[in-house]
Design a protein around this nucleic acid. Structure first.
Lengths: 332, 332
DNA sequence: TACTCTTCGGAAATCGATTTCTGACTTCAG
DNA sequence: CTGAAGTCAGAAATCGATTTCCGAAGAGTA
């Protein structure tokens, strides 16, 4: 392997000068500079990033810890993050936590030993890893969910408002018996969206009934099961609000299996878009989250945090957007 | 920061011994070993991965260079790769090349300077980065596409056979005027799938006509435009085979826009699944690729390549699976 | 002219862990 | 009992780039 010493010898200068030429951190005589560049080209020299990282005591890696890259919500978010990372000269390390606090902790640990420059993380329920990183003062941006007792930059969507809009849209369509499938009680997004659902009911003068709410696991199978249980009620709901994309898919599959159709048999609004929601027939009404923007914003915050670690943490809340399609057509 | 020297001092041994205890690469007196462990715990010592990487002259990073993580094909593939990486103690760095040879080259360069342990790459048309990595003898696995003149481990799907099956299925349904929307001429998958299409026509005794073939860009917009041009033919096709998922979506959107329906107006078979293809109504018939397995296989090959760099390269070809759904119902 | 200030190149220290080398000590065979 | 072989801990070299420190030379000022 050719090193900076080889280049130095070849160009008749010291390694220090070579380093200065290549990093551009100090002025160097143009003549020497030219010699160095020539030597670099001749030798095909490529700096050793690891050595640089050791000396500089930091890497150009960002970790993104999410529950599952296969969920389109995170896919687009990661894309937004990666685009920022690329322009800022960072690389993104992908970490699937699968909602498992132990995995989250393991990745947090790796972030520390590998001296990664920063982390964007969607915390699991117990947020073990988040605590660890917070203590170590690693630059960190929380996405999608808040964590009690941790002061960090955070990017959220306005879950309550988005849910309100989605449910309100159903109410305006003439529906009154509206069910809700939401996520685990410990997850802030599940509770915020449920709160939006309740607020919309209240505003519409509809009494809230616990019987019409199901707490599932934010996964497809959970949505399916919750839908079944709702349909088996003595008096099934006439409309449904589901608080994430995978559970919406599960619910729709349950409907299909039973030969029921939206919106004729039951109107449906889902939180978070699914890819090509237009192609699903009838096309699915959703409260769309700006997922790409979420990732992008997280990246920008992380960049700022790294640049000025002392700054007080900020929280950015992005707006959702109601995409009205066919499954929420007004009641006939 | 606490270093191995601090631990050594605290436990009354040399840094070398601490290293040996922690790496477990050599026997150490159990008594000393215990002391070291105690000191590590007391000080909350965490090894510096970067320093280790420098000394060992390698990192525990794998790069995965794909065109776009937002394409569900790659999402699932990356997931498969990441799962292998995790069990093998590697981390996955995500690199979106956007089919741009310059970006591919830039990432290849980063792989080399950062001394990453290996690369899984889906080559762009000119495969600039692949050449670079090949010359540097970086452990590398090619996925999805072949590259002329590069001898490397490769994971492919049986494109020609898959396409044959899909088109043959249409022919068996009684369709004869079958169009094909495929990708750029320089991309091996596009050509292989086109070859499968032609082979199926031949086997079915149908004359191949250039007029029914469109070369697009493997993207949604390209699929849309190609569909338009096919529908504008004096005699539009009665069935369609599309060679990737995004273009299929574009084509379906074009149909929807024109008020046409599959399979009544035109039967459709797509290559590569889309998420929740069942929910699209009428549900979409696809030649499904084992995307997760592709990623997993690539990971396993990469692991083996790293373990024994001298081994002759191997190519693994995975089978596609025809998922018959509604858009390819037999001709009435 | 003399002195200060600035600029710039090179020698050497540095980042933190690993690993080679060395020597002390133990074990075992003859 | 002696010599060879084996085990293990510690000292020091090492990975490759960066950066501090120092000195030389040039620019600018009184």
């Amino acid at each position: 392997m050719t090193t900076i010493y080889d280049v130095a010898r070849r160009s008749g200068v010291s390694p220090a000068t070579v380093s200065r030429v290549l990093s551009g951190r100090r002025n160097v005589d143009p003549e020497l500079s030219e010699k160095v560049r020539a030597a670099v080209a001749e030798l095909g020299y490529r700096p050793n990033g690891v050595a640089r990282n050791l000396r500089r005591a930091s890497t150009n890696l960002w970790a993104v810890v999410i529950s599952d890259i296969e969920n389109p919500f995170f896919t687009s978010l990661v894309r937004g993050l990666e685009d920022v990372a690329q322009t800022e000269g960072y690389h993104v390390v992908l970490c699937n936590s699968d909602e498992d606090p132990a995995k989250e902790a393991a990745y947090a640990s790796a972030v520390l030993t590998e001296q990664m420059a920063g982390v964007v993380i969607s915390p699991t329920s117990t947020a073990e890893g988040v605590q660890q990183l917070d203590e170590a003062k690693t630059p960190m941006v929380l996405i999608d969910r808040r964590v009690e007792g941790v002061e960090a930059d955070t990017v959220l969507v306005d879950n309550e408002h988005g849910a309100f809009e989605g449910v309100n849209h159903l109410i305006e369509g003439g529906y009154r018996r509206i069910a809700c499938i939401t996520g685990p009680r410990r997850v802030s997004t599940a509770m915020d969206r449920l709160a939006g659902y309740r607020a919309a009911l209240r505003a519409g003068g509809i009494r809230f009934s616990k019987d019409l709410v199901r707490h599932a696991d934010f996964r497809e199978a959970g949505g399916f099961a919750a839908m079944e249980s709702l349909l088996d009620l003595p008096e099934p709901p006439e409309a449904l609000f589901v608080t994430n994309n995978l559970m919406t898919v599960g619910a729709l599959e349950c409907l299909a299996k039973r030969g029921l159709r939206a919106p004729d048999d039951i109107a449906v609004v889902g939180f978070d878009d699914i890819p090509w929601a237009d192609l699903v027939v009838p096309s699915l009404t959703t409260v769309a989250q700006p997922t790409y923007e979420l990732g992008r914003t997280a990246g920008l915050l992380l960049k700022d945090r790294i640049a000025s670690p002392g700054r007080p943490p900020s929280t950015v809340t992005l707006r959702t957007e109601l995409h009205i399609r066919a499954t929420s057509a007004p009641k006939k």
